[in-house]
Each structure stands twice: as structure tokens, then as C-alpha cells.
């Protein structure tokens, strides 16, 4: 009897399997088609893109890529973006975890107030504060350096970090912390040794959530930085946007290259992410 039922549900599973494969396949096509358009058009000329925008170029033009690599500036832009984005994310994760750990364990009304103060930051467009931030950066002499972006991004990332990490931290089984505490571990040690490793999915979520807007931010570099060797990648790319004309083939080449590290990082992190999950004993 039991085996019959099992068979039935597996049969059903097969049909559902086909449907699910179909859904995933169709969506992937919708994702890959624009990427294909991006890739092939990055090998064309400014105007030849439009002769046949969705198919292989008649004449492959590698100049876009060689220009990017030849022009030392792009490598500098790249380094700047990399440095500032990854440092910001690292700081966000560290500071955010400390706050979340405290807020999840601290009882009373003060932590609730602090929590709301932090997440209120998600609800206003930070652009509104541009003029003040510009003034602050000027007074602490960070203007025109990529370091002006570090505290801004950190502050921008904190609300989401506090929000997501605190929500996850609340679900964290208290028994595990207790056990570690009985074993004589300090609270900070518990955070670093016990809680953080099991929070990997949440940390990865926060990291990825912030990685994208930081990496692709144009506004703050635009108003803070005019010095050539302090520009971020996206700001550097805007040089290709003219008043009346834009060299899209070149833009696509630069931005294809700029997307690569983020994609690679994602692939790397999502593996870590799965590893962390299978190793962890955290159950919902």
C-alpha cells in the first residue's frame, strides 16, 4: 500500500518536473537574450549596432576591449571601485552583526527604539542628503577621494544589514548560545564562533543586497569625485556618454567587463552559501 502511494507521488513529480523545467528554461531564455545582445553588440561599432542589433557583427571589432585594457585609467577605476565596495561591505557586515547580536539579545524598549532608528534609514532617498554629505566630506577633507564613498556606503548599507541580520538573529536557537555560554565562552566569542558561522546565509544575503547598489552607484561618485585617478568604474564609463551621442558599443564592452567580477563573486558566494547551509544545523 505504502509503496503504491509513493509511486503515485513520484509519477506526479515527473509531470511537475517537466513543467518546472519548462518554466526555468523559458525564464532563462528571457534572461540570456539581453545578455547575448549586450555581448555581441560590444563587438560592434557605435552605429553598426543598429544594422542588425540582435545578431553577430559583420565585422568583429575588438577595439572596444583593447581600448579598455590599453587605457590604464580603466584599471585604476576598477581598482577604486573594488577597494571601496568591498571595504564598505566588510564594515557593514561587521558593524551590522554587532548591532543585530545586541538587538536580538537585549531586552526592553531601548533596543526596539534603536532598531527603528536604524531601519528608518531605508525609507528616505539618501540623495536628499547630498548637499550635507558633500559639506561633511569637504570638512573632513575626503572630497575628491574614493574614501569619501566608504562612510556613505557603510551608512547606506547598515539599515538593511541591521534589519535582515536582526530578523535572522531572532530566529537563532537560544539553546545553542546558552550551551556555549555554559562552556565558558564570552559573548563576543559566541558571536564570532557560534552565531556568525551559522548566520552565513543572512550575511551573504546582506552582502549581495549591498554589493549591487554600491558597485553600480553613480550618484555619489558623480558629486564627490572629479579627480581622474579617484574615479569609480561607473563614473569613468560616463565619459562615453556625450551630450547628443553615446558610444554604446564601448559602454557595453566596459560594463560587460565590470559585471564579470560581480557575477564571479556571486558564483563563489553562492557556493559558500550552500556549503554553509548544509554544514549548519539551523532549522526553521
Amino acid at each position: 500500500m505504502d509503496s503504491v502511494r509513493r509511486k503515485k507521488s513520484r509519477l506526479f513529480g515527473k509531470k511537475a518536473g517537466i513543467a518546472s523545467s519548462l518554466i526555468l528554461f523559458v525564464w532563462s531564455a528571457i534572461v540570456i537574450f539581453p545578455l547575448w545582445v549586450m555581448f555581441i553588440n560590444s563587438f560592434k561599432d557605435r552605429l553598426s549596432i543598429y544594422k542588425n542589433p540582435f545578431w553577430l557583427p559583420e565585422k568583429w571589432n575588438f577595439k572596444n576591449y583593447t581600448n579598455v585594457l590599453k587605457e590604464g585609467n580603466y584599471l585604476v577605476y576598477f581598482r577604486n571601485s573594488f577597494l571601496v565596495v568591498f571595504l564598505s561591505i566588510f564594515i557593514v557586515l561587521v558593524l551590522g552583526s554587532l548591532v543585530a547580536y545586541a538587538l536580538a539579545n537585549w531586552k526592553g524598549s531601548i533596543p526596539n527604539i534603536l532598531y527603528f532608528i536604524f531601519i528608518a534609514g531605508m525609507m528616505l532617498p539618501i540623495r536628499i542628503a547630498s548637499i550635507r554629505l558633500l559639506g561633511i566630506m569637504k570638512s573632513i577633507k575626503l572630497i575628491n577621494t574614493i574614501w569619501s564613498l566608504l562612510p556613505i556606503y557603510t551608512a547606506m548599507g547598515l539599515p538593511i544589514a541591521v534589519f535582515v541580520l536582526t530578523e535572522y538573529m531572532r530566529q537563532f536557537p537560544k539553546e545553542l548560545m546558552e550551551a556555549a555560554h555554559v562552556d565558558g565562552a564570552g559573548r563576543l566569542k559566541i558571536l564570532v564562533r557560534v552565531v556568525m558561522p551559522m548566520m552565513r546565509p543572512a550575511l551573504a544575503t546582506v552582502a549581495i543586497y549591498n554589493l549591487v547598489p554600491f558597485w553600480n552607484d553613480l550618484w555619489f561618485p558623480l558629486i564627490m569625485i572629479s579627480e581622474e585617478n579617484q574615479k569609480t568604474l561607473l563614473l569613468g564609463v560616463t565619459r562615453l556618454f556625450g551630450q547628443y551621442q553615446t558610444d554604446w558599443s564601448m559602454v557595453l564592452a566596459v560594463l560587460s567587463l565590470s559585471a564579470l567580477p560581480v557575477i564571479l563573486l556571486y558564483i563563489f558566494m553562492s557556493k559558500q552559501f550552500i556549503k554553509g547551509l548544509t554544514a549548519g544545523a539551523l532549522k526553521g
Binding site: 564594515i91 558593524l95 551590522g96 554587532l98 548591532v99 547580536y101 545586541a102 538587538l103 539579545n105 537585549w106 531601548i110 533596543p111 534603536l114 532608528i117 536604524f118 534609514g121 528616505l124 539618501i126 536628499i128 542628503a129 548637499i131 550635507r132 554629505l133 561633511i136 562612510p151 556613505i152 557603510t154 551608512a155 547606506m156 547598515l158 539599515p159 541591521v162 559573548r187
Partner: peptide, 25 residues
């Protein structure tokens, strides 16, 4: 004790986010 954990984040947050935002409001 728990408040100590939030100090570093609060400093960055207040100085670079809360103050400029409130002032803009």
C-alpha cells in the same frame, strides 16, 4: 553592555546618515 555593541555602527550611522537626512527634512 549591549549598547556597547551598537556604538560603532551608531557613530557611522548618525554622522553620515541620520544627521544629513534629518537636516534635509
Amino acid at each position: 553592555y549591549w549598547f556597547l555593541y551598537t556604538i560603532p555602527a551608531l557613530l557611522v550611522y548618525i554622522f553620515f546618515m541620520a544627521y544629513p537626512l534629518l537636516d534635509s527634512i
